[in-house]
Design a protein around this nucleic acid. Structure first.
Lengths: 228, 228
DNA sequence: TCTCCGTTGTCAACGGACTGTAAAGAGGCG
DNA sequence: CGCCTCTTTACAGTCCGTTGACAACGGAGA
């Protein structure tokens, strides 16, 4: 279970984040000011740090810089209030991996959290999903290959990424919006049917009967869910 | 326990609100005029502020604006008398999250309070109920799945939301009006049988005998109550 | 106990919202 | 230019939420 350190002084925001991460299967720890956050992060580096910019005792920017100076490589996401947008550049310069502007949806934060953690593990830990099989389908993401019943199936880049994300979240309902964040990298979510389109294509290629999907099922008014 | 600051000069109204919030599990604090309210809110920002518009020493609108100017992000609900409806727009412009016109039912205020607090927490906060079991039924809200006696049961989005709200308030009687606020997001409550309809559907799907409900019981002339 | 009226349960039908999918448009790359 | 993939558009089909009607029920008062 990945551990996340949340450094945030606003009580209700801190609670909300803690609950949210807990809900998503993280082990959250809280710190209420910059110094405490720094101490905790150094004592036992977590897998992810959520860092408010405005903090008592020591600003998030300083915490971030000191952590990096001490060789802590844990991914860091900064929380900034609107109007502190200038901090973006500064924050990234200080060594943050991403930043989110308040107010934000928890889903957005989560998608970014997944992204920075994946990036961080990209070189070393190889936490990325390499291959997966379900039904008569097998996919090798590393080699960019897929087979159904032994026969090779051509999947485009997007189709593969989409399938991978769905598989990585198998059993869970994934919202279209979430997919647009995670697979497409959209920041502003426009209204679009792109996701549906690609799901349809995927189904045609990997489902036995595309009109009775067995693996990628629709959850009306919510999104899609991978079963397998 | 969430903290609420009630800024209200009318003695009996203030007492009523304090008692009501206390009953609902809040830790209430009172302020009798605008300046006191502002001071208290700045000294120790609560999780929710109830702010009368007409106040001695400093109007609710001014309090609201100053709070926002000082970076206080706590959700604010304004209380306005009928005929001050013009304040609605003004209040929202000043940074209030919602407003309620006197006279109002406490239930209405409570429902709006829950709504703005949930919004402020980015949807993550109090709504962290992931799964729940009762009788031979198990529901996983995260996976959007339900089972009765091991068999999958199809629940629509609304049905699931309704069930979730009832379970989160298990043991309490929940009025139809309250459900329309919380589950449907209605602001103006029209006369409608929609809630009853959905309760009936839910009962058919999760109760053993739909005509002898065991889990979702009717409280005549009041609403519904979940037992489990 | 019986009656009456307001409240709740339930059915069927309508309509709107959501989804599936084909086909055209847009852009990149050799 | 031609091929490929991704995106948008358009339309049809499906799902589900809502409504109105009526039956059944509950509680209060005679």
């Amino acid at each position: 279970m990945p551990r996340v350190l949340i450094v945030e002084d606003d009580e209700s925001m801190a609670i909300a984040l803690r609950d949210g991460f807990e809900y998503e299967g993280f082990a959250p720890a809280l710190a209420r000011d910059g110094e405490a956050g720094l101490r905790q992060a150094l004592a036992e580096p977590p897998d992810l740090i959520i860092l408010d910019v405005m903090l008592p005792r020591m600003s998030g920017l300083d915490v971030c810089r000191k952590l990096r100076a001490d060789g802590v490589a844990t991914p860091i996401i900064m929380l900034t209030a609107r109007g502190q947008e200038i901090d973006k550049v500064l924050g990234l310069k200080m060594g943050a991996d991403d930043y989110v502007t308040k107010p934000f949806s928890f889903m957005e934060l989560m998608a970014r959290a997944e992204a920075v953690m994946r990036r961080a593990n990209g070189g070393a830990g190889a936490a990325a999903l390499e291959a997966y099989s379900f039904g008569d389908v097998s996919v090798n993401f590393k080699k960019h290959e897929a087979r159904k019943g032994g026969r090779p199936v051509d999947l485009s880049q997007r189709e593969l990424q989409l399938l991978k994300y769905l598989i990585e979240h198998r059993g869970q309902v994934v919202a279209r919006e979430q997919l647009l964040y995670a697979v497409w990298g959209y920041e502003q979510i426009p209204f679009t049917r792109t996701v549906d389109m690609h799901v349809a294509k995927l189904r045609k290629k990997i489902e036995g009967k595309a009109d009775e999907p067995q693996f990628i099922v629709t959850v009306h008014r919510v999104g899609y869910k991978f079963i397998g």
